[in-house]
Design a binder for these strands. Structure first.
Lengths: 151, 151
DNA sequence: CAAATCTCAGCGGCACTGAAATTT
DNA sequence: CAAATTTCAGTGACGCTGAGATTT
């Protein structure tokens, strides 16, 4: 009987350990929600393009904390799926101007609905007041710890 | 001026995204605290052995949510460093009885002090009451989402 | 010329799978 | 025999680095 699978008590008090434990469920619940060949950051890229308009790859990297190399692969996929386009920026031809296609826009809407449902599912064990407080605390920590971690 | 590196507003409301953003800082602050060749799960293994006594590899996997293959590599390192030993379990010779050495025990003490400091640093942007509430909420989510995810 | 942007090749840690060897 | 345990080989996503090509 009993907790043969209980983790050491020390870990249970370490927020960084709890957080890492939750990474996998967080990835899983979202992966299940998007239920397709999409990478996890596809939605983030589409959302950034929708909110801020066409952007260079470097700007997307800055906004989303994604590595420049990974952004290349990400956009290769989005482009192959017809969700985004790359065009040389006439103002600075070193840059690619990345734009959302109309197919990409509707794909984004679909993804957003599913991912929002996944968020609710993820927070479901907490009462609403704790849900709000948790999100607020996480926002504070992200704002403090995720500053200029990209190049 | 202004927020040229602001993420899309939608993401900012997604707890799973916030959580994933915090993974890297969480890993970083702990990595800096242990400041050595230790893998991130070394401390967890040592703590489990200290709290529950000698255990089989499968039991450690269950407790720590670590894959059986990764546990092999983990113990190879701990054994090479003289922090843990493997001995065939006389009661069931399929099992290895993994034990903490005295060197491992003192290594654990040193690690724990440093990692506890890292936790404080990680939570430092939050007022103490929010720190407590956050840990409590994370514990609830882990308890709910991390059930039998191992084999 | 130096600096910025994009691309590609590759590395290392990590979570995981499948299969073999041993033992119950 | 089936099932459990450990081990190894290999896969794939991910974060990252270094170097080359192009443009400013």
């Amino acid at each position: 009987m009993s907790d043969d699978d209980a983790p050491p008590a020390v870990l249970w008090e370490f927020p960084t350990w709890l957080l890492l434990q939750l990474s996998q469920p967080a990835i899983g619940v979202v992966a299940q929600a998007i239920d397709g060949p999409d990478r996890r950051s596809d939605f983030a890229v589409l959302a950034a393009l929708a909110e801020f308009g066409p952007a260079s790859q470097t700007e997307l990297c800055r906004r989303l904390h994604v590595d420049r190399s990974d952004m290349v692969a990400l956009l290769n996929h989005l482009q192959a799926d017809g969700h985004a386009t790359r065009a040389p920026d006439p103002l600075d031809r070193r840059r690619n101007s990345v734009s959302l296609t109309s197919a990409g826009r509707s794909h984004l809407r679909r993804l957003q609905k599913n991912i929002e449902a996944a968020q609710s599912e993820f927070l479901e064990p907490l009462p609403p007041s704790e849900q709000q407080a948790l999100v607020k605390s996480l926002q504070t920590l992200v704002a403090h710890h995720c500053r200029g971690t990209q190049r």
